[in-house]
Structure formats: C-alpha cells, structure tokens
Amino acid sequence: MKKHTLAVTVENRPGVLTRVTTMFRRRGYNIESLAVGATENPAISRITIEVTGDDRIIEQVTKQLYKLIEVIKINDLTDARSVDRELVLIKVKADNSVRAEIVQIVDIFRARIVDIGRDSLIIEVTGDSRKIEAIEDSLRAFGIIEMVRTGKIAMIRGGK
C-alpha cells in the first residue's frame, strides 16, 4: 500500500467533481486529499487526488476514472519527477515569552507570519508534505490552536 498522487484533467463543467467523488465512494476507495482548480485552459479543470492503495487498486481507480465521460486524462505523479505543494495555515499559541523562538522556526522553514494576535500567531507554510509535517511537529510544543491544510497540487518537471 502506497500513497499515490493522481493528476486528473477534466472538463470544466458543473457536476464533474461529483462524478469523480461518487465513483470513489461507490467503489470503496478513500480520498486522502483533493484539490480542484482552474488550468491555463478555461474549459479544463485539474483535480489532484491523493489515494492510498496497492498497484491493483490504483489501476482500478485509474480505469474507473477513465470511464467517466468528462475525464480527459490521468497522470500518476507518484514515481514521476514532479513538484508538489501543499499550503497550511497554523494558528499557534504565542505569548511574549515564546514569540522569538517561534519566529526563528518560521524563518528556518521559510514560512510566513500572516496574522498577529495578542496571544497567538497565524503561520502560512507552503511546501511538500514532509516539510509541512516537520513544521507542524516543531510548533506542536507551543500549542496548536487551529490548523487547516489544502489538498496537494502537483506538476511534472521539465517540458512534458
């Protein structure tokens, strides 16, 4: 069992996302993360899906996705040379005694502070999953009040 990242190119029409997620639900596959957005072509959207499974499951997921009329193309970016990013917002407890220490962590991870409250900070991080997990671990000791994370988006490197 392995986590796969599938980049699914679809027609930009109402209901397409429902068709995709309905297929996952009906066939019993679990979506770990999902990101949907526009592409350079306004008629086409891109759904990036993370799904865990062995080769056979991923093959079935891919074939079943291809059967949806509005799915145009599927790329499995898992083993491909690709860039992937997630974005996370973390609200962390931060009174004066620890603020400096937190700012240092933010610098090390090249994250950003986007809001300052009396006893808290909101930190924005972009990066791959490993980086995001690492900063989350570093901040946990201060007390994470709230955290929200986007799905992963990914792209193959080079001219392809």
């Binding site: 079935q60 074939k63 079943q64 059967k67």
Partner: peptide, 8 residues
C-alpha cells in the same frame, strides 16, 4: 471492451 473489467 471495458479495460476496467480486466483484472477487476
């Protein structure tokens, strides 16, 4: 005819 049936 349906690739999804093969290996299902």
């Amino acid at each position: 005819i349906d690739a999804a049936e093969i290996g299902k």
